[in-house]
Amino acid sequence: MENSNKMKALVKYAPGPGNMEIRDMPVPHAAPGQVKIKIMEAGICGSDLHIYHSDIAIPVNPPVITGHEFSGVVDEVGEGVTGYAVGDPVVSETAYDYCGKCDFCREGWYNLCIGRRTLGYWYNGIFTQYTVVPADRVHHIPEGVSFTAAAMTEPLACVTHAVGDLTVINPGDVVLVSGPGSIGMMAAQVAKAYGATVIVSGTDIDEERLALAKQLGADYTVNVQKDDLEALILRVTDNYGVDVVLECSGAAPAINTALRLVKKRGYFTQIGLTGKKIEFDIEAINYKEMHFSGSMGSRNASWRMALKLLGEHRVNLEPLVTHKLPITQWEEAFDLFEKKAGGKIFLLPVE
């Protein structure tokens, strides 16, 4: 297939629920200012399922090749591009295009640009053999970092944005990570890298994930359906509550529990998306003078921090991956994801 002008790709071919299939698509070429990347490994994000179900607020432009979490090697360098050579191991930011003129872009917060158009949503993504991206979005993979770990740079960058840009964690702080999915596992490790004592909470369905969180450095893990999270937190914090909540589950009960258990003037950063409107105690934010923030995507500084943590081996991402399937088995992979069977699921290119 490498010498062919076609490649197998997972395509959202029309608006509406479903409307996704494997198609033969043209192999792209790098235009001036672009880099063509051969995909090595690629992860499924929850948003890929939302694209499939057509219930996502981010603009989607079918027909489009889906997927945006990946690692690869430079296959072709467009005219005018410097700093990259064929064969370089790389990753790419997902913010394929943004206006560059609005206040958010000019201040470095292009993740909030209203004109942002995203890889795998608006522009052809990475569930295929090759993708093309603007050279300014490309980052070198640090030496010694595997393609598997590097393929999770994008979700890790979302976490480093949430922690580094929106939250204050001081050494010795107690941090509650609510929800031990892949993002929660990353958040726990990033918080540990900041010097925090970390508590990871989950439910019965998360028993294996909680065990893995412990192996990856969490100080405490709690199944809230079996153990008393509040009692643990009050004991560890001298009855003050946790300094920081990194809420990664998006579940209403977990959000309300965390609001109750964060201390006065503490930080609460909502990373997980609820997928629907929920009821929560907004007055708790007032009464506690809480620093409450949502978090959306990532920006250049987030990517640099994520790659630094990977390069220094301060986070360990490979154990998060439980399944690697060819893109031709995407339906099975999506089903596993929706059933929360296992951890991070990868789709690999096929010829």
Rank of each mutant, 00 (worst) to 15 (best):
Ala213Asp: 12
Tyr220Thr: 04
Ala151Leu: 04
Asp219Ser: 10
Leu176His: 07
Arg209Asp: 05
Thr160Ser: 05
Leu166Ser: 03
Tyr194Thr: 04
Ala150Gln: 03
Ala213Met: 14
His140Tyr: 10
Val175Pro: 11
Thr197Tyr: 05
Glu154Pro: 04
Thr203Phe: 06
Gln189Val: 09
His140Trp: 00
Ile183Gln: 02
Gly217Leu: 04
Ala162Cys: 15
Gly195Ile: 12
Met152Arg: 01
Tyr194His: 08
Ala196Leu: 03
Ile199Arg: 07
Ala218His: 05
Val174Met: 12
Pro155Glu: 05
Ala150His: 05
Gly195Cys: 11
Thr221Ile: 14
Lys192Glu: 11
Met185Lys: 02
Pro171His: 10
Lys214Asp: 11
Ala187Asp: 01
Gly217Ser: 14
Ala188Gly: 13
Ala211Ile: 10
Ile205Thr: 13
Val190Asn: 04
Thr221Val: 15
Ala150Pro: 00
Glu207Asp: 14
Thr203Arg: 08
Val198Met: 04
Leu176Tyr: 04
Gly179Tyr: 00
Pro180Tyr: 05
Val163Cys: 09
Leu210Ile: 02
Leu216His: 13
Ala218Glu: 05
Ala149Arg: 03
Arg209Asn: 09
Pro142Leu: 00
Ala162Arg: 06
Arg209Val: 14
Lys192Val: 11
Ser146Arg: 11
Lys192Gln: 10
Val174Asp: 11
Thr148Phe: 06
Val198Phe: 04
His161Cys: 11
Leu156Arg: 03
Val163Gln: 01
Pro171Phe: 08
Asp165Val: 14
Phe147Asn: 03
Tyr194Ala: 04
Ala191Asn: 10
Gly217Trp: 13
Glu154Ile: 00
Met185Gly: 01
Met152Tyr: 06
Thr160Glu: 03
Ile199Tyr: 01
Met186Thr: 06
Val200Phe: 01
Cys158Ala: 15
Leu210Ser: 01
Pro142Met: 06
Asn170Gly: 11
Glu207Leu: 14
Asn170His: 15
Ser182Tyr: 00
Ile183Pro: 02
Thr197Ser: 12
Ser201Arg: 00
Ala196Gly: 08
Gln215Pro: 01
Val174Arg: 01
Asn170Thr: 13
Val200Leu: 12
Val200Ile: 09
Val190Gln: 11
His140Asn: 07
Gly144Trp: 04
Thr148Ile: 13
Val174Ala: 15
Tyr220Cys: 01
Gly181Trp: 12
Pro171Val: 08
Gly144Ile: 13
Leu212Gln: 07
Val168Gln: 15
Asn170Pro: 13
Gln215Val: 10
Pro180Thr: 06
Ile169Cys: 07
Lys214Tyr: 14
Gly144Val: 13
His140Val: 04
Ala187Met: 03
His161Glu: 14
Arg209Ala: 09
Leu212Ala: 12
Leu166Thr: 00
Asn170Val: 05
Asp204Glu: 11
Val175Gln: 05
Gln215Asn: 12
Ser178Phe: 00
Gly195Glu: 11
Leu210His: 03
Gly179Ala: 12
Ile183Lys: 01
Glu143Tyr: 08
Thr197Asn: 09
Asp173Leu: 14
Glu208Lys: 14
His161Arg: 13
Gln189Ser: 04
Pro180Glu: 08
Ala218Leu: 10
Ile199Glu: 06
Gly179Met: 08
Ala211Phe: 05
Arg209Met: 07
Val175Tyr: 12
Leu166His: 14
Val174Lys: 02
Gly181Tyr: 09
Leu166Gln: 12
Tyr220Lys: 06
Val177Asp: 14
Gly179Lys: 03
Thr203Asn: 13
Val198Gly: 10
Glu208Trp: 12
Tyr220Leu: 05
Gly164Tyr: 11
Gly184Leu: 03
